[in-house]
Design a protein around this nucleic acid. Structure first.
Lengths: 338, 338
DNA sequence: CTGAAAGCGCTTACAG
DNA sequence: CTGAAAGCGCTTACAG
């Protein structure tokens, strides 16, 4: 099959040792072999179309120049955009990326971690799923370089790059209050993950600061596994009873898409009947009749930051922790009633 | 760092050779070691939390259980959906996937191919970019198992899984004609890639069969690198002159998104002023005021088929070529004037 | 400046 | 049933 030509073949052809060939072909070992011999070797290598076997190199060197990437789901546009940035940034530094989707399931992410470590990735970038704390602790214990993105566990010191989610939600809700809304709802995921807790906290704090008392059914949570139905029931709940919401903050891209579809079905008009603020942009919103106000996340900076933090750890190998938290940016358009 | 424990450690602990450990830990070598010794070894392996080094295994075995995946762009929803299917299907068979985006640039895809081959992937799935024929020929020459998806080169016999693009376009245009449209335009990419040629051919053939003579500026092509402007100019061209189009067929997801935005800006009403048929579904269309008629591609089947064809080649290693062509499905909704 | 040798962590004929 | 040995394709002290 392929890759028939190895160092040995070149060595034989030129009549030197494989060591000499290795020296001649690798940068930084100039002194080890005479210039003319090096030229001869390089010529032979080119002639034979020599391609180094990275697997052998990796085994010897103890590093693979490979990064692992564990996302919640590659097919989600938010994550695939980040994946693209990470890919480009990694390539820039001579790294390749192996990816996998956890589907928000801790078992799957355990699986992926094991696969990636067995493949000796030099480090890993993870969007951690709920209840994956032990996995993160394991990585620390094993001294595997890693950085968390989008979410992290505040009680576990580690590198991460994330948004200031509390502030994001706080500002979103404050903005709605400033627009005159008094019954502001929030639709979130049912999860203990910190980013979601922070978004909920930001929502509640904003209501408090603005002197609004939250009704029990203004804040609803839906399960990741049952989005469509969950969203429908949640919104029904927010609209029933004595205090139907007049504004709704979506904690997530996907929640917004599903929620808006249902709101349209109910024939509610945005922003007149219901003011809206969403999380993240997305092609999906481009055709919505009312331009959406949303919390912008700096996807490019997140991906780039994650790779840099990771390479830093890998190359310094001193376990240095780096944490990047971005400020949210509220993009104000018509849907919030401005 | 990590992975401190190797076969040797277990061998020492139990007091046997590494060979015995290898036999005990690998399936299918039952006879090689006594049951009680095997049990002892497995217990020790568990106790030491032994994780096999796949790199070493790969070097020895000549296979890595890794698949390479070259997409045009992971952040494009069509491709990221396929990536997800491929990931899942590969995992199902014990394979891991390394991916990269070519950005439709042959240099980038050459790069990726070299990186992937140096990493000894067992095979590769490629969305080939324009002018990448020599790359495909190289893969054949090197006997690297590969399968092309979405596009292929008809003059180069190879495995692929794709849509019957001619038929897809033909049916889309026929449908528009049947809806009474007489001046049907098509917006395509400017590329020699076969899938696009076929879509154009299908368009032209349908017009012919239905007795419509195509005006020069009904079929427009835009460059991948200049989509936004290109789309604008193309549509302007189709609408000017004596014979403005009354229907438009978009050859691609992305073209449709950009085109529809511009059409909205022009205040043209779909389908009254302009009937529309697009390619592929996508969240982006969910909020469009007029439900779109589109050509559906079986993303799941494409991804799954590609992996199966590839594993078939890898495992049989007889260079068997497999070609899968799916029939398009036209999903008819309001935008085509039905 | 040059090469012989050891070794990265595995697997697998081969001989007992 | 068991183990010593070779080897996958590299790199790098080490001795000349």
């Amino acid at each position: 099959m392929r890759n028939k030509v190895s160092l040995k073949d070149i060595a034989q052809k030129v009549g030197v040792s494989t060591a000499a060939v290795s020296y001649a072909l690798n940068k930084g070992k100039e002194g080890k072999v005479s210039d003319e011999m090096a030229a001869k070797i390089r010529a032979a290598a080119k002639e034979l179309n020599y391609q180094p076997n990275q697997i052998a190199k990796s085994l010897k060197m103890g590093r693979t120049n490979t990064l692992g990437l564990i996302l919640a789901d590659v097919s989600n546009p938010f994550f695939s955009s980040i994946a693209r940035v990470i890919e480009d940034e990694a390539k820039e530094h001579g790294y390749t990326v192996i990816f996998g989707s956890s589907d928000e399931k801790p078992e799957r992410s355990w699986d992926l971690i094991n696969v990636l470590l067995n493949r000796q990735v030099d480090g890993v970038i993870i969007v951690p799923s709920e209840s994956s704390e032990e996995q993160i602790l394991y990585l620390k214990e094993q001294k595997v370089p890693f950085v968390l993105i989008d979410r992290y566990f505040p009680e576990i010191p580690s590198s991460f790059v994330a948004l200031d989610n509390h502030r994001a939600a706080y500002e979103a809700v404050m903005h709605l209050a400033r627009m005159g809304r008094r019954r502001i709802g929030m639709l979130a995921y049912k999860t203990n993950l910190y980013h979601m807790q922070e978004r909920k906290r930001g929502y509640q704090e904003a209501l408090l600061d603005v002197g609004l008392t939250m009704s029990k059914n203004w804040l609803k949570e839906v399960k990741y596994g049952d989005i469509k139905n969950g969203v429908k029931n949640a919104i029904d709940g927010m609209l029933s009873n004595g205090e139907p919401i007049d504004a709704l903050f979506f904690a997530t891209n996907t929640l917004a898409i599903n929620g808006l579809k249902y709101i349209d079905k109910l024939k509610l008009k945005v922003p007149d009947d219901l003011a809206i603020v969403s999380f993240d942009e997305g092609e999906a919103f481009d055709f919505y009749y009312c331009p959406l106000t949303y919390v912008r996340q700096p996807v490019y900076e997140i991906g780039k930051g994650a790779v840099q933090l990771l390479l830093d750890q890998i190359e310094s190998s001193n376990g240095r922790i780096g944490q990047i938290q971005f400020d949210p940016e509220l993009i104000i358009r018509k849907s919030s009633g401005a």
